[in-house]
């Protein structure tokens, strides 16, 4: 068989087909709302966001300090063992300079680009990144591997949501000292 020997289906419509009424359509705009339960692990994670802290969950079998936290380890398939605070600093794994919104509409000429990124959080296991935004610097000044720190909303404005962190900003030179001397990959254990 050859595709070329068949008359293929699929009829491309043109904008004019709708204007002239050649093609009729039916529309529906759903007005649905969902309320998602945060669950056990993410519930605690976001409660800590409200306090301006990031908390991870540890599996003693594979020794991973996991973000986002989870009550079971998907690799060992057993319950995770303990909570552990990690830092609100991290390293840019990758980022983009986005000129489109979630629905593919374009950002307006006066709207700054969005800077989504994967940030590997200090104190979690290597490679444990979360998606969040970058800010407070010119897009061209961000680089993969750059150290960044969370910029939190004011305490009274926090709601226990991922957006309690506004974005991550570059860590200014000389402000990293407070983290020095801590064993790499370990935060403070809590119950």
């Amino acid at each position: 068989m050859k595709l070329e020997d068949f008359e293929l289906g699929g009829t491309q419509l043109k904008a004019s087909d709708f204007k002239t009424g050649k093609v009729l359509t039916t529309e529906w705009k759903p007005d649905l709302k969902y309320a998602w339960d945060n669950g056990v692990a993410i519930g605690r994670y976001l409660a800590e966001f409200k306090e301006g802290r990031i908390i991870a969950r540890v599996c003693h079998k594979c020794d991973r300090i996991m973000l986002p936290p989870r009550m079971f380890c998907e690799l060992c398939f057993r319950p995770t063992d303990e909570w552990m605070y990690v830092k609100d600093t991290g390293v840019i794994n990758t980022f983009s300079i986005a000129k489109v919104n979630w629905d593919a509409s374009r950002r307006g000429p006066k709207e700054p680009p969005l800077l989504p990124a994967v940030i590997e959080i200090d104190g979690a296991s290597e490679g444990m990144g979360i998606m969040h935004m970058l800010g407070e610097a010119d897009p061209k000044d961000f680089k993969i591997g750059m150290k960044v720190k969370a910029v939190w909303k004011k305490p009274e404005d926090r709601t226990g949501a991922i957006t309690d962190i506004l974005y991550f900003k570059p860590v200014a030179a000389g402000t990293e000292d407070k983290n020095k001397g801590r064993p790499e990959g370990r935060g403070k254990e809590v119950r």
């Binding site: 969902y34 998602w36 669950g39 993410i42 986002p68 979360i130 935004m133 949501a161 991922i162």
Partner: peptide, 11 residues
């Protein structure tokens, strides 16, 4: 993820 990612309005 509806809780940790969607509020950032990703595409």
């Amino acid at each position: 993820d509806h809780t940790t990612e969607q509020p950032l309005m990703p595409t």
